[in-house]
Design a protein around this nucleic acid. Structure first.
Lengths: 111, 111
DNA sequence: AAAATATTCATCCATATGGTTGACTATCGG
DNA sequence: CCGATAGTCAACCATATGGATGAATATTTT
């Protein structure tokens, strides 16, 4: 289901550390796991786990060269969240428009 | 901290049931807790808890009339998530532009 | 071949989350 | 005042999450 993708993405993005990781990757380009971990007051392993979560959400990709894993940001999936929001807004506006019409036609009847 | 707000919003939005609640509210306008709960295969209490999470994230507001609580969608906070995404994208593009410049000036030197 | 480096895997822990049920509170209708 | 209705609060349970540490794996360096 696509809805699960959206949940995964939003959950992955819902953690401060993971958002910081994404920011680092976006501003510095692909980074190794150790390089990323250096920015956090947290064990390498914990950072590694966060990366895994981001990876499973499709928000980062991994290119392995020998023993080094290069992690890169992947912003594409965030468009799913934008789409969801846009859809909500459009439904909202449709309803408001319908409401508007109701009021207008009521006014006309009352004239 | 504002970052906590963003986490709260994304976490609230990261659950399917809660997103469905938002959709219902957006398309039908304010609804009572019981009316909302009727749409889910889940106890009233669970829905009530989801509403609370949404409320704490600012994604819904509550108007209490007597014993009835009317819940309404509040899309404003979702703009924070849009801003975050937009910021990521802009940093990304800045870096790409800088990279582009580097390549161009390298080409010029090599001519 | 041995030591060092880069990373994941496995386990453990405390706390958070999503769900349940039962009790409590508040309001409405007779 | 009493029963029904609308909700929340409290406690409980199973599973998920975010963190830690120690061991295992793979690769590079010496």
């Amino acid at each position: 289901m696509n809805d699960d993708d959206l949940s995964r993405i939003l959950k992955a993005a819902g953690d401060t550390t993971r958002r910081q990781i994404l920011t680092l990757l976006v501003q510095e380009g692909a980074l190794r796991v150790t390089a990323l971990a250096a920015h956090f007051d947290m064990s390498l392993n914990s950072v590694s786990k966060h990366i895994k979560v981001l990876e499973e959400a499709g928000l980062v990709t991994r290119r392995t060269l020998g023993r080094e894993h290069f992690i890169a940001a992947e912003l594409e999936p965030l468009k799913l969240t934008e789409n969801w929001f846009a859809q909500l807004k459009s439904i909202w506006e449709l309803r408001l428009a319908a409401l508007e019409n109701l009021l207008v036609s009521k006014d006309e009847r009352d004239e």
